[in-house]
């Protein structure tokens, strides 16, 4: 059963990812990417990482994809979009590079001996455990994150402000 769900979600994620890069219309790409993200959230749940799954849906499928959708709609590219024949060779080279990279990484995975399985506990992915880690061992990075977000916020406002 677990196996069937894993393969189903993996298939949805891969098909969604392929759809993202092959759809001509950016709007469809965004929607396909949302499907991929939901499939990945399902995989996180299978790995018993509930907190990551929920944050993934809220941040990626919720916030980031809405931002993309917003930009796609605001630019309204479909009316402007002219189909320019691009260099076909480059497109095939890109696919070739991707497949080659997959081959190399796959071969590397095949050669590597994976670490032994640790003691696994269903507690690992809960808010309680992760929250304690975040506020003890990772307190400094966590606080620095807020500086990063403030800097980003100011940067975005400065960048998008229209010149007077």
């Amino acid at each position: 059963m677990d196996q069937a769900i894993f393969y189903g979600l993996a298939l949805i994620a891969i098909v969604g990812a392929l759809a993202t890069i092959f759809f001509r219309n950016a709007m469809y790409s965004v929607l396909a990417l949302v499907v991929t993200f939901f499939a990945m959230a399902g995989l996180y749940l299978q790995l018993k990482a509930e907190f990551v799954a929920v944050v993934h849906i809220i941040v990626y499928a919720g916030a980031i994809m809405v931002l993309f959708l917003f930009v796609v709609m605001m630019l309204n590219l479909n009316s402007v979009n002219t189909i320019i024949r691009s260099n076909v060779n480059i497109k095939w080279i890109a696919v070739l590079v991707g497949v080659g990279m997959a081959g190399i990484l796959g071969y590397g995975t095949y050669l590597t001996t994976l670490p032994a399985r640790g003691v696994n506990s269903t507690e690992n992915g809960t808010v309680k455990v992760l929250g304690k880690m975040l506020f003890n061992e990772y307190l400094l990075p966590f606080e620095l994150t807020s500086v990063l977000l403030i800097a980003t916020m100011v940067g975005v406002i400065v960048l998008t402000k229209k010149e007077e």
């Binding site: 790995l47 018993k48 990482a49 907190f51 990551v52 944050v55 993934h56 941040v59 990626y60 994976l114 670490p115 399985r117 640790g118 003691v119 696994n120 506990s121 690992n124 992915g125 455990v129 992760l130 880690m133 975040l134 061992e137 990772y138 990075p141 994150t145």
Partner: peptide, 16 residues
Amino acid sequence: AHRGDPSGQVFVFFVM
């Protein structure tokens, strides 16, 4: 999840 070590998930949080 494989190693049973939640640090990886905290790291994912920062990547997000």
